[in-house]
Design a protein around this nucleic acid. Structure first.
Length: 422
RNA sequence: GGUGGGAUGGGUGAGUGGCUGAAACCAACAGUUUGCUAAACUGUCGUACGGGUAACUGUACCGCGAGUUCGAAUCUCGCUCCCACCGCCA
């Protein structure tokens, strides 16, 4: 959510930046500014009436105390007019407040100046590539065939017990999952992130804090009985640790990581993109989250990118990094880098990580601030996957397949306890 | 699930209708004193929003929401959460 003060001051700049998302925000901005103006007028009036009421009440109190009953009663009558006025203004103010809030919720974050205008994935900028794409002298198989052949994943069993998108991992497949989680966590901890094991369900306030609510409730599984949401990512519980927090000074850098299963309803998605591990309702992910001083968030983003690069290098996977264009970025993001691994067998790029900075967009909702001298200022938040497992597993299987089985990258062997799946 | 108790500022905690945005103590910060540290003393010490170039000033907030009243932290109602004990259970 953008700060209203910023919209008041930098309307034109915001408008220009939002154009990079291919949207014309000027009707919304105008509506916001108009509502804001009306709200301020009403608020000022209300404050004045309330001040008058307070003064009257005080005088009445004094009159009563000094025994001037009739004067007090006379004043009492005066208050009734003010009272109705106050009630009306209160009503007005709160209605306008709600309208303003609703309008602000509809406005996405302002893209960073490095972000280019664009429509969709076609317009993303390829900023980095690494690793070599394997050449096979045999018929390379997609991961769903490999998973079946080596009894690593059982999709049918998942369908039986739960439904589509909830696979079982078994044997070496299960072990490989556990190894990846452990590997990712160890790497994150080595990079200075504190590990958390968080709740897998969150309350409504947390959903609002990170921006899943309102509007995206369809993406989350909901437990009606208790009014809880299953987390779609560890970002939600980790970031919400800092909801309604004021950090005591400007000298901070908070780095958190956590493994959680992630639950996503993915309503309305279907087709070949959901085959195998490509899109699941439940998957595992290690997430990294940072809370930074505004001056520090650019550097933090670079560090997070390096961190993910390092992971993919160690897994010996060919990948590229895209800087998303305005149109392809998430609602809350100011700048996003997507990591895609090339899957040799599917012959396409799979998104395995998304690293973003949100600037003050989340912290404004979270009310996450720090004290700088006497002022309180909004923090910056960032997060990224490091990494999501299913597509990593898919690309490990597909890229490291040989005629004799699947080779486990060296960095992972200490965690799996085996070097090949055959 | 049952019964009882509770929710006040960073913490402890006073406050049962006006003098309370809130005592006192602790913590924190600044200063004085001091060879340094400590101690002592003095001062500062919530958040949000409005108005104002600013000094400043107004309003709201004592878990949340409604009500009574000229006036509510204080009274009434509803809700949420926390704690203790019992029941159930990993």
């Amino acid at each position: 959510m953008l700060e209203i003060q910023r919209i008041r001051q930098e309307k034109e700049a915001i408008l220009a930046a939002l154009a990079k998302r291919n949207i014309d925000a000027s009707p919304t901005l105008d509506a916001i500014l108009e509502t804001d103006q009306n709200w301020r007028t009403a608020k000022t009036q209300l404050d004045q009436v309330a001040a008058e009421m307070n003064q009257l009440a005080r005088s009445i109190g004094e009159l009563f105390k000094s025994g001037q009953q009739s004067e007090a009663t006379a004043l009492k009558e005066k208050t009734s007019v003010l009272k109705t006025q106050e009630a009306e203004l209160k009503e007005q103010v709160s209605t306008l407040e709600q309208q303003l809030q609703q309008l602000l919720y509809t406005l996405p974050n302002v893209p960073n100046e490095a972000v280019v205008q664009g429509r969709d994935a076609e317009d993303n900028q390829n900023v980095f590539e690494a690793g070599s794409i394997p050449q096979f002298d045999f018929a390379a198989q997609p991961h769903w065939d490999l998973a079946k052949k080596f009894k690593l994943i059982d999709f049918e069993l998942g369908v039986k017990v739960t439904g589509a998108g909830f696979p079982f991992y078994r044997g070496k497949g299960a072990r490989l999952q556990r190894a990846l989680i452990q590997f990712f966590l160890d790497e994150a901890i080595a990079a200075g992130y504190e590990e958390f094991i968080s709740p897998h369900m969150v309350n409504e306030a947390s959903g609002y804090g990170t921006g899943q609510l309102p509007d995206k409730e369809g993406q989350m599984y909901y437990v009606k009985e208790d009014d809880f949401y299953l987390i779609p990512t560890a970002e939600v519980p980790l970031t919400n640790i800092y909801r309604d927090v004021i950090l005591p000074d400007a000298n901070f850098s908070i780095k958190m990581c956590g493994y959680t299963p992630c639950f996503r309803r993915e309503a309305g998605s279907y087709g070949k993109d959901v085959r195998g591990l490509n899109r699941l309702h439940q998957f595992d992910k290690v997430e990294i989250v940072r809370v930074e001083h505004p001056d520090n968030s650019a550097k933090a983003l670079d560090e997070m990118i390096d961190h993910v690069k390092n992971l993919l290098d160690k897994l010996e996977l060919p990948y590229r990094i895209l800087r998303l264009c305005g149109g392809d970025m998430g609602f809350a993001s100011a700048m996003t880098y997507d990591f895609e691994v090339y899957s040799a067998a599917q012959e396409k790029w799979l998104e395995v990580s998304s690293v973003s900075r949100f600037d003050t967009f989340q912290s404004n909702r979270l009310k996450l601030r720090f004290k700088d001298d006497k002022k309180t200022t909004l923090c910056h938040t960032l997060n990224g996957s490091a990494l999501a497992l299913p597509r990593i597993l898919a690309s490990l299987l597909e890229n490291h397949q040989t005629a004799n089985g699947i080779q486990i990258p060296k960095a992972l062997q200490a965690y799996t306890g085996f070097s090949v799946i055959e």
